[in-house]
Design a protein around this nucleic acid. Structure first.
Lengths: 156, 156
DNA sequence: TCAAACCGGACTAATTCGGTCCGATTGGTC
DNA sequence: GACCAATCGGACCGAATTAGTCCGGTTTGA
């Protein structure tokens, strides 16, 4: 139950692109070096994001990749689903399958709630947000969860 | 990025236990058959839940397993962490590691928010809730997300 | 003492993750 | 038109994780 590196790399790549001027074309090789991501792997990831319409890729001399939309209009959820396909926190939340067990379904309801929460967080976070957050460090991350706000004490 | 079967089976096992009278001792074999979970795998899972103090297991003739607490006092988060260890939606949210990249950290902040949301949902859901939900079917699960309540339209 | 149960560790098969490789294709440039 | 710069796309591969299995050991009741 971990978010894959592909998604992490994809997001980093887009942040990197957004940091440049808008509409600027950048070599994959360049992003790869800047973010220390294996070039061939990054290529695969950008292919998928390209198919999903998040970036445009230009072949041939002087080619590279460029954002297909404004950074404010690309959400982390889109990045995630471009790379991983539809989010399914659990088997029976997959688009095709239906759950036949009864107890399983009680569980599925909870899993779906959790998944909807994740989607909500990812869906409201854009590349522009990530870029901004990166620019202003020393807050909004690492242990403490203060950023969340409405957490109940979590039993335990 | 999926919840494992072990967690699913573990929760199902506890629901199954909770359905019996309180304090009743049940054979693993029986749960295994009732829920169609491989017996040896279920054994492993109950071992972990036993170590975490969620169930008590009694060896020898007439033995079996029994809930160590009231169903209202066992949360899905406890079940999850008993089986999987501390929740880490992403590498750099693991208890030991710290994240060194800047962009990575902007990401980690979001991942942590998402993780906190999942923990909140799991932390407030008890075995008793699951049992109740199972008893009253036809609501609270499968597509539509009406059960969640405060979801913003999720962009796109 | 014997059999019923769980314990615990070693082992294994299948799947997913994290990549690599390479030939094909596309587009500038000379 | 030849050539070079780039991405595309699919095949492939090793390592890690998941999902179990197996079996000998230990505890306990009859």
């Amino acid at each position: 139950m971990q978010i894959t590196r592909a998604v992490e790399y994809g997001a980093m790549g887009l942040i990197c692109l957004a940091r440049r001027g808008p509409g600027e074309t950048v070599l994959l090789e360049e992003i790869s070096q800047e973010e220390s991501i294996p070039a061939s792997f990054l290529g695969k990831i950008f292919q998928q994001m390209s198919r999903a319409g998040l970036v445009r890729s230009i072949r041939g001399t002087g080619g590279g990749v460029t954002l297909a939309k404004a950074p404010e209009q690309i959400t982390l959820l889109e990045i995630f689903e471009a790379i991983e396909g539809p989010m399914a926190l659990q088997r029976c939340l997959a688009p095709t399958v239906t759950c036949e067990r009864q107890e399983g379904c009680a569980l599925c309801g909870v899993f779906e709630q959790a998944q909807d929460q994740v989607k909500e967080v990812f869906g409201r976070t854009t590349v522009a947000d990530l870029l901004k957050r990166h620019a202003a460090p020393g807050q909004g991350h690492r242990r403490g969860g203060a950023a969340v706000g409405k957490l109940s004490p979590v039993v335990e």
